[in-house]
Design a protein around this nucleic acid. Structure first.
Length: 614
DNA sequence: ATAGGGTTAG
């Protein structure tokens, strides 16, 4: 203590106050605090205010509160800043309590516009409305900061009508106000209204660009996200860490590896430091773009890995069918004392088991959720188990699990079960399930499609016809297949059977050539699973134009011989396409990587990394 | 002396 300068040098409140503001460590702060007490400044309002803020900045709310409780008659500055500390720590109830204490003191302390700004930050609708009343009562509702805070509360909480009304009636608005309003729309899925306001802005900072790009990424509009990002770059607005996280997510969704790599090198070249957010986004991007090696590299180098980073890597291994590796990362994570598995970890690890048919390991992990980790399995975890059991052929067990679980089964889980019935050609069980669904009014479009697929798979064309009629009667449509491929930093999309791409003529010529090769190999199209265009073309013809085949044909004509072709598909790959792609990889000596809705397939020399189990 | 908007995994 004696070695520090604070014991001997004389101090004025002003010099102490400025020392507090510049202090870099909590120990340093304690010494200054001690010096302040020794000099008899412990009741000095400015000193105490600064001390409180400083403790708060070191995340020592406990010290802040002690100090506050020892202070007689705190003034509005002290009240406001302690309220701010509380709300920043998500302690809004305590914040409101302090506000009430403040206005009901014997000697009332009048709140000001700053007090209301702090009260509103991050608060929920019930408190927001309460604070709103007090804002009006104290006459601060025309203050821009306060009004922005109100807009923010209503829009974050989804009361977009109230938010918009307050917004429209504002005397003036700042970038922050607009961003709050845009965020409200964006977070609740109204991307059009968000974009409309965004386009009307006369000045934009990086935060509002981030909100808009992030909204596109969140609502799975990766092309819009990337387009807007390019626009941001073109107006010389510098992207920051938050921008890049959103853009990387978009790259992952669309499988744009070249763009993703470009972002990674942009980080290096522009001094954007790696951190756990960016690292996780990179792991996600690389794995969804088929480059598991790069995902591993980022993961291994990443410091301070949190559970989100671990989950991203577990999911990456699961998607690529590397079940053992996923299990290793999972157990490493469980061994760390800083990370505990979450519900997402279990979705990842159970999917990893499903992709390799690790039934008993999966069952063990599923049981451990509740027993060992105190996590109640959700419908998604049950879905993973139904998938694991069903794919492995334990259809009865899967069915029993759905019937006995204490959550209401949803259409997804029934779909998973029916999918497994199709895979194992179990018409009897499938019909039992469908009858159950119809009897209980649970059948939906998916039910008909799945049963129809099953009839097709077992060559029961009468059954297919019956389903076809039922679907027509119910106006059921199948989600069109869509595949994309990135060539020279540009993403090309193909929808099943479409002719929209500028190079369509060449693509279809290539497809004819491929069909010739396949015929020479003695391949005949399998009469599987095609419903979206039934009745228009004969089955064999429609099989030829599944979207991934168009994308692969485009890849063959637009990339260098021998290079890898990478495709992203929105649906699960069908049996026929899977067989055909295996053959194409053999004939053309190309490595073909297909990411379908569930996982990766790496086709090489006539076989697939999923070992035909998917 | 003090305030308002943005981030990752299925």
């Amino acid at each position: 203590m004696l070695s520090t300068p604070f014991c001997t040098t004389p101090h004025t409140p002003e010099t102490l106050a400025s020392l507090i503001t510049t202090t870099k460590t909590i120990n340093h702060l304690h010494q200054i605090h001690a010096a302040a007490i020794r000099h008899g400044f412990n009741t000095h309002p400015l000193i105490n205010f600064k001390l409180q803020r400083s403790y708060s900045s070191f995340n020592r709310l406990d010290h802040s509160l002690t100090l506050f409780n020892l202070t007689h008659n705190p003034n509005v500055f002290f009240y406001t800043s302690i309220i701010q500390s509380l709300t920043l720590n998500n302690l809004h109830i305590q914040g409101i309590e302090l506000y009430i204490q403040m206005i009901s003191q014997p000697v009332q302390v009048q709140p000001n516009e700053f007090t209301f700004s702090c009260l509103l930050k991050g608060c929920r609708l019930e408190f927001g409305k309460l604070v709103h009343c007090h804002v009006i009562k104290h006459g601060f509702d025309r203050n821009m900061h306060v009004r922005t805070g109100l807009v923010d509360v209503y829009s974050r909480c989804g009361d977009l009508v109230s938010a918009r009304q307050l917004f429209d009636e504002m005397p003036e608005r700042s970038v922050v106000t607009l961003t709050s309003m845009i965020t409200g729309y964006a977070q609740h899925g109204d991307l059009e209204s968000a974009r409309e306001l965004f386009d009307e802005m006369t000045e934009r900072d990086s935060v509002c660009w981030n909100v808009m790009i992030g909204a596109y990424a969140k609502y799975r509009k990766p092309t819009d996200a990337l387009t807007l990002f390019r626009k941001m770059m073109s107006v010389k607005m510098k992207p920051d860490e938050v921008t890049l996280v959103a853009v990387l997510s978009a790259c992952g969704q669309i499988g744009a590896l070249e763009s993703g790599r470009w972002i990674h090198s942009y980080m290096h070249n522009n001094g954007i430091r790696m951190n756990v957010h960016l690292g996780t986004a990179l792991i996600d991007m690389y794995s969804k773009c088929g480059s598991l090696k790069d995902a591993q590299l980022v993961f291994n180098k990443l410091k301070n890995k949190d559970v989100v980073a671990y989950n991203a890597m577990i999911t990456a291994y699961a998607m690529h069918g590397y079940s053992q590796e996923a299990l290793v990362v999972f157990s490493n994570m469980c061994r760390m004392h800083t990370t505990r598995p979450t519900d997402v970890s279990f979705v990842g690890i159970l999917n990893a088991c499903a992709h390799s048919g690790l039934v008993s390991i999966g069952k063990g992990i599923f049981l451990s959720m509740k027993v060992k980790h105190n996590i109640e399995p959700s419908i998604e975890h049950y879905g993973c188990m139904v998938n694991l059991l069903g794919r492995a052929g334990y259809l009865k067990q899967a069915y029993r699990l759905v019937k006995t679980m204490n959550i209401n089964p949803d259409p997804v889980i029934w779909g998973t079960l029916l999918d497994s019935c199709t895979l194992h050609r179990n018409v009897v069980l499938a019909e039992e399930i469908v009858k159950f669904l119809v009897d209980n009014n649970l059948a939906n479009s998916g039910t008909y499609i799945l049963l129809s697929n099953l009839y097709a798979a077992t060559s029961d064309w009468v059954g297919v016809g019956r389903m076809r009629t039922m679907m027509k009667d119910h106006g059921v449509h199948k989600e069109p297949g869509c595949s994309s491929i990135e060539v020279n930093n540009k993403v090309h999309e193909f929808v099943a059977g479409d002719m929209k791409h500028p190079d369509s003529a060449k693509v279809y010529m290539m497809l004819e050539e491929v069909n010739g090769w396949l015929k020479d190999y003695g391949y005949t199209p399998q009469t599987d699973i095609v419903l979206h265009d039934f009745g228009k073309k004969e089955r064999a013809r429609s099989l030829e134009v599944h979207s991934e085949k168009l994308a692969i044909a485009f890849g063959l004509i637009s990339t260098k011989a021998g290079s890898t072709i990478k495709i992203v598909k929105n649906l699960r790959v069908c049996l026929d396409c899977h067989e055909v792609t295996k053959l194409i990889s053999k004939i053309t000596r190309r490595r073909i990587v297909v990411r379908d809705r569930n996982r990766f397939h790496v086709f090489e020399d006539g076989s697939c990394s999923c070992r035909d189990y998917w």
